[in-house]
Design a protein around this nucleic acid. Sequence first.
DNA 1: ACCTGAACACCGTTCAAGT
DNA 2: ACCTGAACACCGTTCAAGT
Lengths: 204, 204
Amino acid sequence: MPRLRRPPRKRPDRYHHGDLRAALIQAALRTIQTRGVEALTLRGVGEDLGVSRTALYRHFTDKSALLAAVAAEGFRTFHGRLVAAWEGAGRGRAGFEAQGLAYIRFAIEHPSSYRVMFGGFLSRPLPPDLATESAAAFQALVDAILEMQRAHLAAPGEPLLPARFAWATVHGIAMLAIDGVLAPADAEAAARFAVAGVARGIAA
Amino acid sequence: MPRLRRPPRKRPDRYHHGDLRAALIQAALRTIQTRGVEALTLRGVGEDLGVSRTALYRHFTDKSALLAAVAAEGFRTFHGRLVAAWEGAGRGRAGFEAQGLAYIRFAIEHPSSYRVMFGGFLSRPLPPDLATESAAAFQALVDAILEMQRAHLAAPGEPLLPARFAWATVHGIAMLAIDGVLAPADAEAAARFAVAGVARGIAA
DNA sequence: ACCTGAACACCGTTCAAGT
DNA sequence: ACCTGAACACCGTTCAAGT
């Protein structure tokens, strides 16, 4: 059956026009969400997109670069959640605790993304754009601490110390929840107790 | 060159006598420590031991079972460290903080073992013997909390809540240190601040 | 019982070649 | 520029066969 000369309206080979990169990221995210990071194969995403298994190398230097791009998307929405929680709860101590809970809830709602972001799958050091996104998310936490120090809700001193303490705690609760060590019901109670505990621990 | 009839004194094929299992665990631990978990291949450990690459299946059902055995060894020494730190520092609040520091230091000294134990490489649910070792290590923490509650050094109530809070925090600091997010010098300072913060956060 | 060798069904990545 | 197909150097695991 010979091909017709007439140009097709819209066909699956639209990837020739430059959106293969975005499509690859979306496909990778989809399989990560449904089947986990360890099930992600480059051959698989190529197949999902009806594209050769090596087409990907036109857009990413290797598999870890693809993962980094997926993680970058995750960091952007993560950052947004942290800022929204802090401001939505009116800042202060309530805002601090809301931010901590938002951190943990993001991890529980998007366990696969969270694992890609923090599970040691990314090559170190992080690619520059990803490092920027990651630093921005952490900065949301530092900003909250700084404001609490100014309002005498947190003890004065180097803000990185309480920021890392808080980060470590919510990250720890998140990992325990994601790994199934904490049942979903227990995770919420543990999260509430932990963020309140950190607030007490750093209080002026 | 025909083989002689005389039995050899001591030869590399001593694995025929039953210690292949132990040798496999040691070989796996060695390559994990020197080259990381992701560099561990069953073919590699077979080669290291001068044994067929499938000999391992006589002793372990699969790769994750080998990893579980490595992790079990890690949990045993880990448990010992936690108990020793608590008792060595005279229990109480000093003991609690010493235990937290010992937790983080174990992770920093044995990053590969720690990653195998808590990095999501183990198949869930954990094999029974490993679950036992893991629970015993966590119990050291719960025991410390219980004793602090009796001594009015920790607020009364369900001990699992402060225990999980403390666990999450030290685990979080440990992961940040292992992943290189915290430089070694910063890790020690962060660890000290965090364990003191938890002690304050759970105080009566 | 314990171990081997060949085979199977996968991987990520490279590279010459096509359009 | 962008994509393909074949090839390379790996994996974990199964299984019939050897001792």
